[in-house]
């Protein structure tokens, strides 16, 4: 699939950027809303020896791009997503999120960056079970010290849950919970949105609706979207796909 260009500034040739070992123009500073890695890898210690989950990942994602990370189960998709989003630290290599290096940043610095620029949608929704839909969506704004009630209400209405504001997650179906999660992810108008198997726990029809919602929330294409999925249809809706196999990016 030929990757389309983002309306935002592009600093790298998108094809060259995914070739293993290919070095980009490192003298240039990654733009806001973009992602970059250079030779990133992740190894975890196990009782019977270290396990390499990812190795030698170098990629560039331009601001505004919609990229799908695909691959078979166990290929390292979620791990790559975690590293790109700063939820985990690479064992080696360098990574930039929203134009800022995160490979050597501590957890607080990464959290601060996420608060400013990132939204996240989990496969299992990860809503706060004791908080209503409204409170869940308002939470990221509250963490920034902002009143989030009005924005949260507006977002929930936009995702079709205007009548369920005060319901707890256990009172919502899987699809409805994912809608809340998407609304929460967009509450802070993130420059980058990460989604980990957003339709993985949903039926086909509901999954389609969620996909539409996910992309529909950013009509103006101002948000970089990185989605991990094994759903080929969802992957096809993205500008390009990064295919992982046994922890390595395929050309």
């Amino acid at each position: 699939m030929t990757p389309s260009h983002s309306p935002h500034d592009r600093t790298l040739d998108p094809i060259a950027s995914v070739l293993p070992g290919q070095q980009a123009d490192d003298a240039s500073t990654p733009a806001r809303g973009s992602l970059r890695t250079r030779d990133v890898g992740k190894t975890v210690p196990l009782p019977d020896g270290a396990l390499t989950i990812l190795d030698g990942i170098s990629l560039d994602i331009a601001a505004g791009e919609r990229v799908a990370i695909v691959g078979e189960s166990g290929s390292g998709k979620t791990t790559l997503l975690s590293l790109l989003a700063g939820l985990d630290v690479p064992s080696h290599g360098e990574a930039w999120l929203d134009g800022r290096p995160i490979h050597a940043a501590d957890e607080d610095a990464r959290a601060a960056l996420r608060a400013q620029a990132v939204g996240f949608v989990f496969q299992n929704f990860q809503l706060m079970p004791a908080m209503s839909a409204l409170d869940n969506v308002a939470l990221p704004l509250e963490l920034r010290g902002e009143a989030g009630g009005a924005i949260a209400r507006s977002l929930l209405e936009r995702v079709g849950l205007g009548q369920r504001l005060h319901h707890l997650p256990r009172q919502l179906s899987g699809g409805e919970q994912q809608r809340v999660a998407i609304a929460r992810a967009f509450a802070t108008r993130p420059r980058i949105l990460f989604a980990d198997e957003p339709t993985g726990n949903l039926d086909r029809k509901t999954g389609l609706a969620i996909e539409d919602l996910l992309f529909g929330m950013d009509d103006a294409r101002q948000t970089t979207v990185v989605v991990v999925t094994h759903d080929e249809r969802l992957a096809a809706r993205c500008d390009r796909q990064l295919r992982l196999d046994a922890g390595r990016l395929l050309p």
Partner: peptide
């Protein structure tokens, strides 16, 4: 779990 989610949403250690 909540701590993990809050971290994802950008909460600092101090918070």
């Amino acid at each position: 779990t909540e701590l993990g989610v809050l971290r994802t949403l950008g909460a600092s250690s101090a918070q």
